[in-house]
Simulated assay, not measured.
Amino acid sequence: MTENPWKTKAIQKIYENPWITVENHDIINPAGKDGIYGKVHFKNRAMAIIPIDEEGYTWLIGQFRYTLDEYSWEIPMGGGPIELDMLESAKRELKEETGLTAQKWTEILKIHTSNSVTDEVGYVYLAQDLKQGETEFEETEILQIKKLHFSEALEMVMNGEITDSISVAGILKAARIFGF
């Protein structure tokens, strides 16, 4: 069934900050019964980048994630305002976090990060023909940069060292593209 079986009766904004809005939806569910649904609306689109050089090396970013209360290894990523071009946002994010610029860009994945509670959409790009420059970290970022062969990043996904959903999906998709 591709037609929406949910009916929205009312939406109430519960909370808002510069990045998200939290809403309470009064709904009629697919069984025809009254119910509620919580939704987190993101004001940015997520974008992630897998930089890969001609020898098959890539870069990961390590950082402490406040919401998880743990350290996380990820592909370079960030948010881009919905009204801006996603590729331009991806180029900015790659430069900020790794210092890299790329001449070749390929979108390889569109992903819904948690479609049960949020409308967040993410995109993953391959960045190739790389040139190293200086990083431009944001004030909230204390990042480690790790250069490793792509096969090692894939192994980190497979053994549970990389758990971020966009990173996992992007690395697995890139592995399929490159035949790993």
Rank of each mutant, 00 (worst) to 15 (best):
L87E: 14
L154Y: 11
N115I: 12
A48L: 09
T98I: 00
T106M: 07
I61N: 00
G56M: 10
K43H: 15
Y125K: 04
Y37V: 03
T163F: 03
I50Q: 10
G133I: 00
I145L: 15
P51A: 11
F150R: 09
K9R: 15
T118A: 05
L94H: 06
I111H: 08
G32A: 09
D119L: 08
E96M: 10
D26M: 12
P76E: 03
M158P: 01
S165A: 11
K110R: 13
K7D: 05
A169V: 00
V168L: 03
I75V: 14
T8H: 02
G78K: 04
L60C: 04
E93H: 12
Q103H: 14
P51V: 06
F137N: 02
G122F: 07
G170H: 08
Y66C: 06
P5K: 09
T2L: 15
Q63E: 15
L172T: 07
I50V: 14
P5W: 13
L143F: 08
G179A: 05
T118F: 04
T106L: 08
K173P: 05
E93S: 13
V117C: 08
D69G: 08
K110I: 05
E139I: 12
S72P: 04
I162Q: 01
G56A: 13
S114L: 15
D164Y: 14
M47N: 07
E88T: 14
Q63T: 11
E96D: 13
K91A: 01
E23W: 12
S114I: 10
A169P: 02
T140A: 11
L68F: 06
Y57W: 14
L130N: 06
T2G: 12
K147S: 06
G160W: 01
E93D: 09
N29Q: 02
H149E: 12
Y66W: 12
G179V: 03
E152W: 03
I75H: 04
M77W: 02
S167Q: 09
M158W: 08
D26Q: 13
G32F: 13
E138I: 04
D85S: 14
E55Q: 15
W19I: 15
I20Y: 10
L154T: 04
H149Y: 09
I162K: 02
T135L: 03
M156K: 07
G133R: 00
D129T: 10
I50F: 00
I111P: 00
I145M: 14
F137G: 02
G79Q: 01
E134V: 10
D53M: 08
K43W: 04
F180I: 09
Q103G: 15
K13F: 03
E70N: 10
K39Y: 08
P30W: 07
I166G: 00
G35H: 10
G56L: 11
V124H: 02
D129L: 13
Q63V: 06
T67M: 08
I108K: 00
S72K: 04
A102N: 03
Q12I: 15
L172N: 11
A102D: 08
D26H: 12
F150N: 12
A90M: 02
F42N: 00
A153G: 07
Q132V: 09
F64T: 00
A153L: 02
K13C: 11
I52R: 10
P51E: 05
I82H: 12
Y125S: 03
M1P: 00
